[in-house]
Amino acid sequence: MDTRMTTAPLRVAFQGMPGAYSEQACRERLPGGEYLPFKTFEEVFDAVDEGRVQLGMVPVENSMAGVVSDSYDLLAIKDLHIIGEYFLPVRHCLMAHRGVSLEQVRKVYSHPQALAQCQGFLKRQGWERVAVYDTAGAAEDLSRNGHPHEAAIASELAAELYDLEILARNIQDSRRNTTRFLVISKQGKPLDPQIESVKTSLLFEVRNIPAALYKCLGGFATNGINLTRLESRPVAGKDWSYHFYLDFQGRPDHEPSQLAIEELGFFTHSLKILGSYPEAPKPPEDPDPQAGEEGA
């Protein structure tokens, strides 16, 4: 009798259809897991909060489109922890039914941001553009209902999952198109003391006093701490009040960080450490020589 223990795969929630860029981030950052799609960001956070999954993978910002406000708003109201980050290069692909050529395409479907990020390529083609709710959803709809003159813009993973042929790769206007994801968990994760590059995320609400934000940030400057992100969002139920999300390089238990956080506390109504985690490297610029290359 085989008595060896088998470990169940890590269950990871993401927002969107199977084949979404969020699932691609899951596969690359957390290989070997079970990746579960949810329709909304709130459902992802709820699944983590209620223990139905161990982790969630949520986007928080894109280098071209900016902040993903839903993720930041949910971090403020849910008692979850950030335990990791990941930078995913966004490589948009044009896909259609097998046997369809680029010359046959007349109409293309995708999420509004994907269409905007591929504006140069689409303008040269002169196709009609149709905005839909999701890149992977556009691929899935095309696989079931599409016609030979229709195509979708989505990830290479979506083309694989929905048995579509890639007509052109890397059709985005910017080679630096990158989305930053956070890995969220119900429980915090102890940091390996050997890890040198660490990032810490804070959430705070400033007091209503003159130069409050300036004073909040002063302690980081005087203690030589580098800030990598500062984002403001309205506080739910409090008109004209704002939360600030701040990322800095360092551990909260190191003396310079402790002094900066202590000074920050003097000028805030509330202060919460969302998590400390290894700082992820940003991807290098895409080395491919030509955007919009035809698929093999």
Rank of each mutant, 00 (worst) to 15 (best):
T135M: 02
A158T: 09
R169E: 15
L115W: 08
E285K: 11
E23F: 09
T3W: 01
V235K: 06
R98Y: 07
E103W: 00
D163R: 13
R180P: 05
A291G: 10
A138C: 04
R251E: 10
S22A: 15
S185F: 15
L182Y: 14
S155W: 03
V130Q: 02
V58G: 01
I153T: 03
R27W: 00
L259P: 01
Q290L: 15
M17Q: 08
V12M: 04
H147A: 13
R91I: 13
R4T: 14
D192A: 07
S241D: 06
S276R: 11
I82Y: 09
L115Q: 00
C26K: 07
T6Y: 02
L164P: 10
L122D: 01
H269K: 12
Y35I: 02
V183P: 05
P210M: 08
E165W: 04
F14A: 04
M95E: 11
L142W: 08
L75Q: 07
I184W: 09
C216D: 01
R4G: 14
D70I: 10
Y35E: 02
N145C: 10
A211D: 12
Q15P: 15
P190Y: 00
E294H: 07
V108M: 01
L259A: 01
M57Y: 03
D192L: 07
E279A: 14
F41W: 07
E196A: 15
F220L: 11
F244I: 08
E61G: 02
V108D: 01
L122Y: 03
C93M: 10
